[in-house]
C-alpha cells in the first residue's frame, strides 16, 4: 500500500501554487513602492495619526485647561528657583542723587525671578532720565541686578521762560536747577534754540576768556545769532556765521584800545567786517559838545 500512498500524495495532491503574483497583488506592490505613496505611509500617516490623537485629546476644554494649568505650574516652579532670583540692585557710575532716582524708578519689587524682569523695558525707562547718558543692565551671578550708568555732564546753564536747566556737551538736558547760584561754575546761556548750538556757545566762552569776570551770559537771539552780555548791560552783537573770529576781534580791540572800559553800551559785529560801537547817550552828547567846541559851530 505504501506505493499507493506515495502515488496519492504525489499524483493527486493539488499542484503547488502558482509562484506568480496575482495581477492585483502585483499592482498593490507597485503602488506601495511608488515614492509618494511610500512617503505618505512612512511620514504622512504617522503625522496624521499623531495629529488626530492630539486633536481628540484637546477637544475637551477641561482637559485643555488641566494641561494649561499643569504647564503653568511647572513653569512657575522653575522660575521660582533660588538660582534665578534677583535680590539686590547695584548702581555704578551714578551720583548719589541719581542712584536714588534710579532705584525709585525701577518698576518692580525685589526679590523677583530674573525671567520676570524685562531688562530692555527697564533700560528704556532709565535711559529716558535726563541725567542719564547711557545705561547698561545685567543680572550678575549671585542674584544682583547690575546697573551701569554713564551720567550726563552739565556744561552750561540754560535760562528759558520756564526756568533754569542744565545742558550737557551735546545739548541734551542734564537736569534742572532751582537757582543760577547753585552752579556758579557753569556759564549761562539764554534764549530759545540755545541748546541746539551748545558747541558754538562753548567755543564763544573759550574765546571770551579775557573778559571772563565781566560776562553775564550768552543770549541766543531769534534762534539766529549770539549776543554776549556783559556786566553793566554792555552787549556784543555777534554775526550769524563765524561768531568766534568776530568776538576775537572785539577782544583784541578791547585789549588794544581798552574798549569795554569806556562808556560803550553796544558793540555791533553783525556785519563782521565793520565794527559799530554805540556810546551811552550822555557820553555821546558830551562828545558831540566837545567836538563842536573844537571845531566851532557849523
Amino acid at each position: 500500500m505504501r506505493a499507493l500512498i506515495r502515488r496519492h500524495a504525489r499524483g493527486f495532491a493539488p499542484r503547488a501554487a502558482d509562484p506568480a503574483p496575482s495581477r492585483l497583488a502585483y499592482r498593490m506592490q507597485r503602488l506601495a513602492l511608488t515614492p509618494s505613496v511610500r512617503r505618505g505611509f512612512t511620514l504622512g500617516a504617522p503625522i496624521f495619526a499623531v495629529a488626530m490623537i492630539l486633536t481628540a485629546t484637546f477637544a475637551d476644554p477641561d482637559r485643555r485647561a488641566a494641561v494649561v494649568a499643569w504647564v503653568g505650574e511647572a513653569k512657575s516652579q522653575i522660575l521660582r528657583r533660588e538660582e534665578f532670583m534677583v535680590r539686590a540692585v547695584a548702581v555704578d557710575g551714578a551720583s548719589a542723587g541719581l542712584a536714588r532716582t534710579i532705584r525709585a524708578q525701577l518698576p518692580f519689587e525685589l526679590p523677583l525671578s530674573s525671567f520676570e524682569i524685562d531688562l530692555d523695558a527697564v533700560r528704556d525707562k532709565l535711559a529716558k532720565l535726563e541725567a542719564v547718558a547711557r545705561v547698561d543692565l545685567r543680572v550678575r551671578s549671585g542674584g544682583v541686578l547690575q546697573i551701569d550708568v554713564t551720567e550726563r555732564v552739565p556744561v552750561l546753564v540754560w535760562r528759558t521762560a520756564e526756568g533754569l536747566a542744565l545742558l550737557d556737551g551735546e545739548g541734551h538736558r542734564a537736569g534742572g536747577i532751582e537757582a543760577r547760584t547753585l552752579r556758579p561754575d557753569l556759564p549761562l546761556v539764554a534764549g530759545r534754540g540755545a541748546d541746539a548750538r551748545v558747541a558754538e556757545a562753548l567755543a564763544l566762552y573759550a574765546a571770551a576768556r579775557p573778559l571772563q569776570g565781566a560776562i553775564r551770559g550768552l543770549l541766543r537771539e531769534g534762534e539766529r545769532r549770539w549776543t554776549l552780555v556783559l556786566d553793566g548791560g554792555q552787549k556784543i552783537l555777534l554775526p550769524e556765521t563765524d561768531p568766534v573770529p568776530a568776538l576775537e576781534r572785539v577782544i583784541a580791540t578791547d585789549e588794544a584800545e581798552d574798549l569795554m572800559a569806556r562808556d560803550v553800551v553796544l558793540v555791533d559785529m553783525r556785519n563782521a567786517r565793520r565794527m559799530t560801537v554805540r556810546l551811552a547817550e550822555d557820553s555821546a552828547r558830551d562828545l558831540r559838545k566837545i567836538k563842536l567846541l573844537e571845531l566851532g559851530d557849523d
Partner: peptide
C-alpha cells in the same frame, strides 16, 4: 506575463523602488 510579473515584482522588492 505571469513570469514577467513574478520576476519584476521580486526585483522591485529587492530594489525597494518602483
Amino acid at each position: 506575463e505571469r513570469a514577467i510579473r513574478t520576476v519584476v515584482q521580486a526585483a522591485q522588492k529587492m530594489a525597494q523602488v518602483r
